[in-house]
Design a protein around this nucleic acid. Structure first.
Lengths: 336, 336
DNA sequence: CCAGAAAATGTATGCGCTTACAGTCGAAGG
DNA sequence: CCTTCGACTGTAAGCGCATACATTTTCTGG
């Protein structure tokens, strides 16, 4: 690590100019084979790795796309579970909720698409200052709807293309899932077999609003307000005075929370009450009963975001892009 | 996006020198409040976002940590599922394997730790050239064991600290899970209730070797060779002439493949044969029967990797670091 | 063997920022 | 009133690379 070599070092070692070194790396054909060989040897010998910073500065482009998440402040560290070879606890199962955050999938999709297009992906989470910093590092930025103050977005949006994931937006490009119609279809399905319905909303925001709007097109219900967490699902289910025919939740987490409570009370699902969610998280597939839901194509959202960004990068004059990805109602045990 | 403003623009607008602008951003206290105010106004007015490239070049540091994955060449794109509001397919379940790649978790852990320490995380996947490129962009690099040619690692290792995830390594820092002892304990557990054991190895590599070594300490078996994929688990299970008392697999994926075949043949697990895996992936918790396994702390691996890198960044003279994280045998239905 | 064109290489500049160092200016001390 | 010092601010020199342009080398055909 002692003082990383630069083009100058390589050039000197190979007996050429720095321009030639640069050419060998960026347009090899422009250099005579013999010279190229010599430079490559120098590169290998010196352990030269070009600085992307310098390069980016020179070409005014980083080839990196940023993905910003608000801070999920759990996981605040704690000691790592080190081990010497002897200790291996044996136990039954682990209580930990596999709160498989849905954006793992978004992330994966974005990464895959970025890789395909020759971009690297930079992910950062934190507060507003982190977002600003990130914006200075990338060619384009994808942000979850409703997680960043408008003025900040506007600020960084003047420098690089920004795409909003989820929700609607009239200022920036955005990609989202077909929330409202998805919930509408699910509501139709439910309404066909249930008379009284309880609808559990999530934290206020575009997702919550759209899903509720979709629901309202197809049915009506007693409305409760949760916050998208499993806990809030439990809370609300506990507070229910009398059981409706169906409980529809604005997302899977809350629906799972509802199932938790119902199960603990010996209420049968779907016989006594039907339950539905929204998102299509993995946990819902494996719960008992498995959860009827509306599946969102998370990975595709990530991919689409990258596509939108690269498209705008290629042609800044592009008119505002708004992609809507298809959702799918998935009927499972909780409301067949 | 028209020509992003620079320090010069801000300086001119605020009527100060570029040094002052820089100070306002990096050490605000060194600037008189009134001046600072003026600069900040200019920043907001012009939509100024500092270029991390230029900054990085000047301070010779990026504050980014890289995470490299080999290319998982599935997901080769395909059309995105766009949608107009009308179409919402309703169906039962989706066949797709939730191949929740374990490094999602590693990634999440790494990201969390990086954020805590004021670093951003850059993830890239692809071939060797991508790795080199990545190396030029970051202050430190985490790489999965056995996925990068030795000479390449050596090359980039001369520029920045590299930490190997999993496996052993005598050249670089590394963090890994307590593979061998974990498998050893599991094998003891199995051997206590099974006479004939089949052991399914994975693709050759440090993980496979260590797990098998651990197994061998506690039991012996007929050995088969898989490649860590679910498919190979199925294949091997299909080819079994006579059923052993237990089938131990070098990872969960293969174990799930084995379960697939056994179930389709009406063989009862664990009554007729016991099955175990290794890793503790989510799918194993939810399979039927649920899978006995050795749980690796993936997220912690990611966190540890970042810790190791930052530690070395802080003190390059540090002696070689080798962290071993504890694993946990988790007994579930497939081999209680 | 030579002019002229094409290929190969070198020179020099700038990308946007940080920071050592050099002023500037007003207040405190003499 | 002048010096001294500290608080601020400005000047200028890189950081490592790409690239337009200039220069040299090599190749072509006559």
């Amino acid at each position: 690590m002692a003082k990383a070599p630069t083009v100058y070092d390589v050039a000197e070692y190979a007996g050429v100019s720095i321009a030639t070194v640069s050419r060998v790396l960026r347009s090899p054909d422009a250099v005579k084979a013999e010279t190229r060989e010599r430079v490559l040897e120098a590169v290998a010998f010196l352990g030269y790795v070009p600085s992307a910073n310098a390069r980016g500065l020179a070409v005014r482009r980083t080839n990196v796309i940023g993905l910003f998440f608000p801070r999920h402040d759990d996981h605040e560290g704690g000691a790592l579970p080190f081990s010497t070879s002897a200790e291996v606890p044996v136990g039954t199962d682990d209580p930990e909720d596999d709160e498989n955050l849905y954006y793992d999938e978004v992330l994966r999709g974005a990464e895959a698409e970025a890789a395909r297009r020759g971009f690297a992906l930079m992910v950062a989470s934190g507060a507003d200052d982190v977002l600003s910093d990130l914006a200075g590092r990338v060619d384009g930025l994808a942000v979850l709807a409703g997680t960043v103050p408008e003025h900040l977005l506007a600020h960084v949006g003047r420098r690089i293309p920004v795409v909003i994931l989820g929700g609607r937006d009239d200022e920036f490009d955005h990609v989202s899932a077909n929330n409202a119609p998805g919930m509408r279809e699910l509501a139709r399905h439910v309404a066909a077999q249930a008379t009284t319905i309880a609808y559990v909303r999530g934290a206020p925001g575009p997702d919550d609003a759209e899903r509720f709007a979709g629901f309202s097109e197809a049915a009506s219900a007693t409305v409760y307000r949760g916050d998208f967490t499993r806990r809030s699902g439990r809370l609300i289910a506990s507070g229910l005075d009398e059981l409706p025919d169906a409980i529809m939740c604005a997302n899977d987490q809350m629906a799972l929370g509802v199932l938790d409570v119902l199960e603990s009370r010996g209420i049968r699902v779907p016989d006594d009450v039907r339950v539905t969610g929204f998102d299509g998280i993995a946990a819902g597939r494996h719960s008992r009963p498995s959860l009827t839901t509306v599946h969102q194509p998370m990975a595709e959202l990530g991919r689409a975001a990258v596509q939108v960004i690269t498209a705008r990068l290629a042609d800044p004059g592009l008119e505002k892009q708004s992609l809507t990805l298809a959702v799918r109602v998935v009927l499972r045990e909780s409301c067949p």
